[in-house]
Computed example of a mutant assay.
Amino acid sequence: MPPGSPTRTSRRIVVVGGGIMGMSTAWALTRRGERPIVLERFARGHTRGASHGETRNFNNAYADAHYLDLLARAREGWDALGEVDGEPLLRLHGLVSHGSGAALGSVGIGLADIAEALGDRGIPAELLDAAEAQRRWPGMRFDDTVLYSPDAGVARAAAALRELERRVVAAGGEVRWDSPVTAVEQDADGVTLHTPAGALRADVVVVTVGAWSEGVLGGIRLPPLRVTEESPAHFAPRDPALPWPSFNHFVEPGTWPANVYGMPTPGEGVKVGFHCVGDEVDPDARRFTPVRQAELAEYVREWFPGLDAATAVPISCTYTTTPTEAFVLDRVGRVVVGAGFSGQGFKFAPGVGAVLADLALDPTAQAAPAFRLP
């Protein structure tokens, strides 16, 4: 067979991208009796994308119905995955949100609105004054009202990826590492996936390739996707016995470069980062050079008396951000797109996977309007 010609075997569904979104989609498909194949361009455990690392913030501080609906589907998936290595994949040590700035995607929405929205969904949340919050979490500083939800915390990122792969393979699916897809082309009968090793045919393709979305999906009109290299860092606690929640700080414009998020990561410290302040990059030519570290250390000195600001260990990751920071979850012909997770997608991954599986299996299915292509 000449190079580049389609293989004789056609797969019903192929998932391109083996990060958290692709693996979640493949798992959702296996739960419905499918046996998808996952093609990932890098090796298992790589650090080139946005899914590596031990933890991600399981942040439920949203008031928009489409995010809360997706959070509910995600929580069902996280719970169904159960325990891994004797521990749930969600560590629900709680989340504190504070500050008078705008929450992510919620201009004009305050902490009281978020608390009400969570309460309407049966998600526990309470508003605390600064003194009470300071008493509970003495390693942090608070100047105003604090929203606390005990039903939040962190997702165990690396463990989740391992478990999802295990489940996909156990259900008859396949995961191929070091298997890049350079482009997808659809026609009336299916989709051709172009790879360096030749071409593969499928009935439906789900593409979840993060920073490489525009290159792979050249034939589909996407919203502008801005790829940035972000540099959060882990800081060492001064007192290992101090309790640490996950956190959001919605800062006032002009005070700090951006909103701040973070979480404890056992063995690494407390992760602190500015949201979406990195330089725009080509994902194949990242510098892996930390940015804004002096400002981040200054922020830690001011707002985290329980952390040693001189102990920063920077991390490199990518954001792929849409103009509205809303995700893209849609289907165009036989190609399903999951893209633009804007630095906030990981916690939603099992829900995103369920939605993308819906779209792959049913051409009439639709995601929430906020997530559809224009």
Rank of each mutant, 00 (worst) to 15 (best):
H98C: 13
P237H: 05
F142W: 03
G4I: 03
Y148A: 14
R334V: 06
T30L: 03
A357T: 01
L164V: 09
G99E: 06
A360C: 02
V15C: 06
D187T: 05
I123F: 11
L104R: 15
E83D: 15
G343K: 13
R176I: 10
G219L: 14
F274W: 02
E126W: 03
L356Q: 03
V205Y: 05
P3D: 09
F341D: 15
P253Q: 05
L92F: 09
T55W: 01
G340K: 12
R136S: 05
L111I: 10
T311H: 10
V107P: 15
V84I: 08
A28D: 08
A160V: 04
L356G: 05
A171R: 00
R287I: 01
Y62A: 10
R238K: 13
H52Y: 09
S246R: 00
G219R: 06
G351F: 04
G262H: 01
E132K: 11
P240R: 04
G101S: 09
V96H: 04
T228C: 01
T195Y: 03
W212G: 09
R166Q: 12
V337M: 08
V146H: 09
G190Q: 08
A310T: 14
E230R: 03
E185K: 10
G269T: 01
C317I: 04
V251F: 04
R31Y: 00
L329R: 15
M263R: 06
E132P: 05
V328A: 12
T192Y: 02
I123K: 07
A197E: 15
D284G: 14
G345R: 04
A72N: 00
N59D: 14
Y261L: 06
E268A: 09
I123V: 14
G4L: 11
L361H: 07
F58G: 03
R11Q: 15
